[in-house]
Every structure is written in C-alpha cells, then in structure tokens.
C-alpha cells in the first residue's frame, strides 16, 4: 500500500518563559492509504502537538525544530502558507476534541459546510454543494439532515456537533483526517456511534485516519497500527495486535496491565508507580526511568534510541523483554 504520510525525526519545541518544552521530540511514523493509526498517550505527552505539526498550526512560542513531514510525497515543512491552506480542509482535515474549534457559533451549519466545499472547488453549483452537505450529514447519522442543516451549532447536542465536524472533515473526501480525541467529551453511547461512523466512512472513502486518544481501548478495535507516546516520544509502535496483545515496552505493558478488565475484579489494580513528569523537568536519560520496573544504569544516563524489531515494530528502550524469543 501507498504511504500517505511519513514523519521522520520530527521535533516540535516550545520556547516558553519558564523554559524549553520538547513537546514532540524525535518522532517517526508512517500512515498508509486508508489506514487507521492510533496515537495513544497520557495528557501532555505530545499527541495534539503532533497533529498540529502535521497540519501546520504551530504558533510561537512553538516551532518545528527539525525533521520532515511528507504528505503524498510532498514535503510540508517548507510549504507556503497558501499551499497549507489549500491542503487543509481538502486533502488534509482535522477534528478537534472541542467541536467549537471547528464550528463558527454565529453561522448556520449549511453556510459553514457549503463554504468548506466552495473554498476548494470554485466551480461547483450551489445545488450540488448543498446535496453533498446533506448526504455527508446523513452519512454521519444525522437524521432529517435537510432540516437540521438550517440550525446553528448551539441548537445541537455535543454529540451532534461532533458529528457535524466529522461531516465537515469528510466533505472533500480528504486523504488523511487527524482526529484529536474526538470522542473524549462524549457519552459512551454517543462515542460508540462516532467510532462506528468514522470507521465506516474510512472504509467507504479510502481516507486514512490518525486517531489521537488517551484510551487504548478506543483504538484497539479499529486501528491497524498503534503508536504509544510518553513525554514527547513514541516509545513503542507496531501493529494493533503486537501493541495490545504482545506489548514489549515497559510503559505499554504497565498501561495495559492497569486496565480494570485485565485485573481480577475487586483486587488492587496493577499500577505504574510515580507521577507523570513535568515536561519542563524531564528526567535525564529515559524519561520513564524513575517509574520503570526494568531500569538499568544506562537508562539514567542516556536516552534510548529507536530500534526496529521488525518492519512495523519499533521500540525505544534499553531493556525490554523480547517476548518473541
């Protein structure tokens, strides 16, 4: 399969008054055409900044310091802002945790959707644009879309607003959608609907999806590949089966073991000790070393580098147990 997105050694840092924050620090991964990739990590681990880096929305005091992002073989880091704008909303779309980051509260839904189409297709007729909006809203499970399109965002529930955002992202059948915790603020029931619809849409349109979440379970069923982030780095990546069923990095192992369903009911849960470190004062060496059960001397001195275990599997750790042996 063709590679849609390739990120190599990307570093996005924030030069704040309080100090240097290496929000994204040397990450590399690929997304193939139509593939669903999960980017999983705790809050502050750099997931959103990874997404913003891809769509070119990093503002001061942040800056992409080095690395490369190739989208359909086109390098994005030196692309003009015009070029980025024409890609965004067209070939490349993002869905945010808060739908109101996408929606304009004072415009009707139909106005906003038709604008999105017309921004990238000047020749389309009003009628045709309207039809496409209506059909896309139908696809994301909004009933009587023709009526609903005349509403303003505040007349919709949170779940419906998020579905409108998904519809807007899908309008121009992009090659890649970055979905940043799109279901975190939603109820379990509505989350199920959204996961279902996103999955169906990607299947139908061949759109690839980077699904950002703090909840491994959300992507376990739908992603084909998972990247696990900790403190600005991808510590382990591989096929969903490798990551969920055969994790090798101590952090991934700890995370999965601490999920309630992996523990005997009522018994203490397996827990990762310690605290999530502040990005302003990361431990020297491996950022996980003061919480890790496998720490060796080297972990406290040097940063582990990425090692390829197989085609798709990459681990950043000095002392993982290779359970395949």
């Amino acid at each position: 399969m063709e590679t849609i997105l390739e990120i190599k050694n990307l570093k996005t840092h924030f030069f704040t008054k309080a100090g240097l924050i290496k929000a994204v620090d040397d990450i590399s991964f690929k997304i193939k055409k139509g593939e669903i990739v999960g980017l999983v990590g705790e809050s502050g681990s750099g997931k959103s900044i990874t997404g913003f880096s891809i769509i070119g929305l990093i503002d001061a005091p942040g800056r992409i310091v080095s690395g490369s992002i190739n989208f359909k073989n086109e390098p994005l880091l030196n692309a003009s802002s015009n070029r980025m704008q024409s890609l965004r909303g067209n070939r490349l779309a993002m869905i945010f945790q808060d739908p109101m980051m996408t929606l304009n509260p004072v415009l009707r839904i139909d106005t906003q959707m038709i604008e999105t189409i017309k921004a990238h297709d000047k020749n389309i007729s009003n009628q045709e644009a309207f039809r496409r909006c209506r059909d896309t809203l139908g696809l994301v499970g909004i009933s009587s879309p023709e009526e609903r399109m005349k509403a303003y965002p505040h007349q919709f529930s949170g779940g419906m607003r998020q579905r409108v955002c998904i519809a807007i992202a899908m309008l121009n059948k992009p090659d890649l959608i970055i979905a940043d915790e799109p279901t975190t603020a939603l109820d379990v029931t509505i989350q199920g609907q959204v996961i279902y619809e996103m999955q169906e849409l990607c299947k139908k349109t061949g759109t690839a999806l980077l699904w950002i979440t703090h909840d491994l379970a959300v992507v376990a069923g739908i992603a084909s590949k998972i990247c696990v982030m900790y403190a600005g780095r991808i510590v382990e990546q591989g096929s969903v089966d490798d990551i969920i069923n055969k994790p090798m990095h101590p952090y991934t192992i700890g995370l999965i073991k601490s999920v309630p369903s992996q523990n005997k009911r009522g018994e203490p849960l397996h827990q990762i000790e310690g605290m999530v470190p502040s990005m302003l004062e990361l431990p020297i060496g491996c950022a996980f070393h003061d919480r890790c059960t496998e720490t060796i001397e080297n972990c406290k001195i040097e940063k582990p580098i990425e090692t390829n275990q197989s085609d798709s599997r990459v681990i950043r750790c000095f002392n993982f147990k290779d359970i395949r042996k």
């Binding site: 279902y196 376990a220 069923n245």
Partner: peptide, 21 residues
C-alpha cells in the same frame, strides 16, 4: 454495556444506541 470499547482487538463492530439523549 455493548458500546464500551475494550482491549479486544477483534471487536470491530459497534452496534451503537441510535439517537440522542
């Protein structure tokens, strides 16, 4: 209960509750 995502990598299909609250 069915709508809850789990670590089951084979659970591909969600049969969600339709409609809004």
């Amino acid at each position: 209960l069915q709508g809850v995502p789990t670590l089951d990598t084979k659970k591909k299909i969600y049969t969600p509750i339709k409609g809004e609250i």
